[in-house]
Amino acid sequence: MEIFYRNALFVALLASLVALGTAFTSQYIFDLWPCVLCLYQRWPYSGVIVISLLGMVMRHQIDSRVFLVLCALGFAATAAIGAFHVGVEQGWWQGTAECVGDTSKALSVQDLKAQIMSAPIVRCDDIAWSLFGISMAGYNVIAAAILSIFCFLTAAKATR
């Protein structure tokens, strides 16, 4: 039964690495710069990476089901953020007022202006890429929801 736990945590780890790898590849190789909601969707994947690694290392000290449930919650969080993002893209509701640029490093008005002018401006309601009418945020919702269900079901199955 222990192999089943370890494999589920490995699936969560691998899926999170692939999701973040895809996000960074689209950003740095294909110049699809993220909006603030895209950036928010990345954080839960980072959390799942840490949780799944801890779960694999500490499987003898702490029940692996705890880590599976935490991974499921991480996937559910990014799915929820993604669903909100899809709603913004579709015009169902308004997005956040934040922008991508970090102006905290500007020392003068000229520095601030240069930083703002050089930062890519990405609106959350602009769909940068889609396939079959589904945006990247939409694919994130689908993948993360499936992964969340997988982790919850694995944890539940392990209790029997």
Rank of each mutant, 00 (worst) to 15 (best):
A15N: 01
A15Y: 02
S16H: 00
S16P: 03
V18T: 11
A19D: 03
A19V: 08
A19R: 00
L20Y: 10
L20G: 03
G21R: 06
G21M: 03
A23F: 14
F24D: 12
S26G: 15
S26V: 11
Q27K: 10
Y28T: 10
I29D: 12
I29R: 11
D31S: 12
D31M: 05
L32C: 13
W33S: 11
W33K: 07
W33Q: 04
C35D: 10
L37G: 01
L39Q: 11
Y40W: 14
Q41V: 09
Q41H: 09
R42A: 15
W43M: 12
P44F: 05
P44R: 02
S46Y: 12
S46I: 15
G47Y: 00
V48C: 02
V48R: 00
I49G: 01
I49F: 08
I49Q: 02
V50F: 14
I51M: 05
S52I: 06
S52T: 08
S52K: 00
L53C: 11
L54E: 02
G55F: 12
M56Q: 13
M56N: 08
M56H: 04
V57D: 10
M58Y: 13
R59Y: 08
H60I: 10
H60Q: 10
Q61E: 15
Q61F: 10
Q61G: 03
I62W: 04
I62T: 09
D63T: 15
D63P: 01
S64I: 06
V66F: 15
L68D: 01
L70D: 00
A72S: 05
A72V: 03
G74I: 01
G74W: 00
A76G: 09
A77G: 06
T78A: 06
T78Y: 01
A79M: 05
A80M: 10
I81R: 00
I81K: 03
I81T: 04
G82S: 08
G82A: 06
A83H: 12
A83T: 14
F84T: 02
H85P: 01
G87Q: 02
V88R: 00
E89W: 00
E89A: 04
G91M: 04
W92L: 15
W93Y: 12
W93Q: 12
W93T: 05
W93A: 06
W93G: 03
Q94D: 13
T96R: 08
A97F: 14
A97Y: 12
E98A: 14
E98F: 07
V100K: 01
V100D: 07
G101P: 05
D102T: 12
T103K: 13
T103W: 11
K105S: 15
A106T: 02
A106C: 09
L107Q: 08
S108T: 11
V109A: 14
Q110I: 06
D111K: 09
L112T: 06
K113T: 06
Q115Y: 13
I116A: 14
M117Y: 12
S118H: 03
A119H: 07
V122R: 03
R123Q: 09
C124S: 13
C124E: 12
C124T: 01
C124M: 09
D126H: 09
I127G: 04
I127Y: 05
A128C: 07
A128K: 14
S130D: 13
S130Q: 15
L131D: 09
L131N: 12
L131G: 07
F132I: 13
S135T: 03
S135I: 04
A137N: 07
